[in-house]
Design a protein around this nucleic acid. Sequence first.
DNA 1: ACTCTGTTTCGACGTCTGTCGATACAGTCG
DNA 2: CGACTGTATCGACAGACGTCGAAACAGAGT
Lengths: 106, 106
Amino acid sequence: MVREPLGEEAAAELSRMFKALSDPIRLRLLSLIASHEGGEACVCDLIGPFDVSQPTISHHLKVLREAGLVGSERRGTWVYYWVLPEALAKLSALLEIPAASAKALA
Amino acid sequence: MVREPLGEEAAAELSRMFKALSDPIRLRLLSLIASHEGGEACVCDLIGPFDVSQPTISHHLKVLREAGLVGSERRGTWVYYWVLPEALAKLSALLEIPAASAKALA
DNA sequence: ACTCTGTTTCGACGTCTGTCGATACAGTCG
DNA sequence: CGACTGTATCGACAGACGTCGAAACAGAGT
């Protein structure tokens, strides 16, 4: 991000990912999934902690999935979600500002 | 994010920052500022690269500023913006998923 | 003081987003 | 097959968001 001014297409794709993270419920969902034992969680584990309805949680999970941040799979009765680490790593790397680039050190 | 399930307040604050990054123009603005010589840029440097009006750019800069991602200061005729590295570092660290936590390695 | 340039604020408009209840779909177990 | 549980989709609605043109504000220079 510091080296190149970030082209239009790249910015569009990245902004879609960040948009998925721009809701407090989705952030908490992601951290619940990531911190869940085995690295994955069933939808039924994700409804309890929130005050919103089940369809709303389902909607948020869909947003996370379509942003490429989580994967999902049905196994029998339940649907499991897990985090896709490459996606988060991509965003994390983008936000790393080399200390030498900070204004204070210029 | 992997260790603790991310409390409501923390999620709310972080989601505000991610929301500021959820627009392609704001992402490009941020990278333009970060990659600009000296680590800061004048608003007049930030208008040219975009197809939107100047008030719209000003609006986006305000969003970035209120999210705590950039600082700004008027010096004479021009207003300068710079990135606040601590804020980006905070988000970057949040998104770092230890490899051992990935589902594939569980 | 006046004007000119750079920047922000204001008011309005159409679109997108989060939420809900109701409903449909998927699998399991009698 | 039929009922039951878990999950996704649909349709609707209120509120938030990105954008614009017009207007206000801030400094610099004449």
